[in-house]
């Protein structure tokens, strides 16, 4: 039995949660794994309805929320893109949220604008879960990333986590860096100079007592890593293709790079990946990105049960 009380709580930003609360969510998520895998049946959310309001497409996040709700016996309604909704007719988000509040018990929102989930939470008495707001927060992604590290490594504090790739624009890595620092992980930021972690994130991490290593060479930084968290470097960030290809090539995980890695180092990636992880890496024991994607389901199951206050 969990003591964590989250009834009607909104999940907008990872910064709204304490380390103890995140620990509680992760513990609960690990109990959900057999149900998420379909090995055990549950009806705890029987009669409850989830609204998935996706003003921006996101297959993985939406499907894992829907899977989580259905695995717990609940129902789902919503839309996967805004073109067929009254947003087209000029309806405010506030009004759309009031409608979803009337039709369901919990709301999951993905929106292209920063702050949309906080606004939604203000207008809804039913709990709102942020599934990504523009370049802002994506707290359930952060939670499933933490859960993956915890379940693969047994702990988060003291673990050497190497965040690499596009650290400047990749939104998941900003809140992940914050959360990892809350848990006292050792952080290394490996990126080309033009895509390094923004100064405000570095400052924020330091204020939490973690001194991150700033590194530009993956070859140098990979050997110390317990976890390598890979993000995609996007073509659009570079003025010319040659420069992009040079940079992308230097931040790619393949079998050669892995020779320098610890035996039990794990590779994570928020997906979709393109070329930043070679396909032959998939079959090595390092590859945990598909497990990580699966972990989205038990973590979201735990959150849905907690905010609706039902216990498995």
């Amino acid at each position: 039995m969990h003591m964590l009380k989250m009834k009607d709580r909104d999940v907008v930003s990872i910064g709204d949660f304490t380390v103890e609360e995140i620990e509680g969510i992760m513990d609960y998520a690990s109990e959900m794994v057999p149900i998420a895998k379909g090995e055990k049946k549950s009806k705890v959310l029987d009669g409850k309805i989830l609204s998935t309001l996706f003003f921006e497409p996101s297959t993985r996040t939406r499907l894992s929320f829907e899977s989580a709700m259905l695995r717990l016996g609940g129902g789902v309604l919503g839309f996967a893109e805004p073109s067929a909704t009254s947003a087209k007719k000029g309806e405010t988000l506030a009004d759309t949220i009031r409608m979803a509040e009337a039709y369901s018990d919990v709301i999951v929102l993905r929106h292209p604008r920063e702050g949309a989930a906080r606004l939604a939470a203000k207008f809804s008495s039913k709990p709102v879960i942020n599934a990504g707001d523009g370049a802002g927060q994506h707290p359930t992604q952060t939670l499933l990333d933490l859960f993956t590290i915890k379940s693969e490594k047994g702990k988060i504090g003291g673990i050497n986590v190497n965040l690499m790739g596009d650290l400047k624009y990749g939104r998941t890595v900003h809140s992940l860096a914050h959360a990892l620092a809350m848990f006292g992980a050792d952080l290394t930021f490996t990126a080309p100079k033009e895509l390094q972690m923004p100064e405000h994130v570095v400052k924020n991490v330091k204020s939490l007592g973690v001194k991150p290593k700033i590194e530009s060479s993956l070859e140098k930084s990979i050997s110390a890593a317990d976890v390598v968290y890979v993000t995609r470097i996007q073509k659009e960030r570079f003025p010319d293709l040659a420069e992009y290809e040079k940079v992308a090539g230097a931040y790619r995980i393949d079998m050669d790079v892995l020779e320098k890695a610890k035996k039990d180092m794990i590779i994570m990636h928020p997906l979709p990946r393109v070329t930043e992880i070679a396909p032959e890496v998939d079959s090595t024991p390092h590859a945990k990105y598909f497990t990580q994607a699966f972990n989205g389901v038990p973590v979201r199951m735990a959150l849905l049960s907690l905010v609706l206050e039902v216990r498995e």
């Binding site: 947003a87 007719k89 405010t92 988000l93 949309a116 906080r118 606004l119 203000k122 523009g134």
Partner: peptide, 19 residues
């Protein structure tokens, strides 16, 4: 100042969110 902040969002009818 963030142009992409929800408080600066105009709907297709040019109205702001009621906040």
């Amino acid at each position: 100042a963030n142009p992409n902040c929800i408080t600066n969002a105009r709907t297709s009818m040019e109205t702001f969110e009621p906040v």
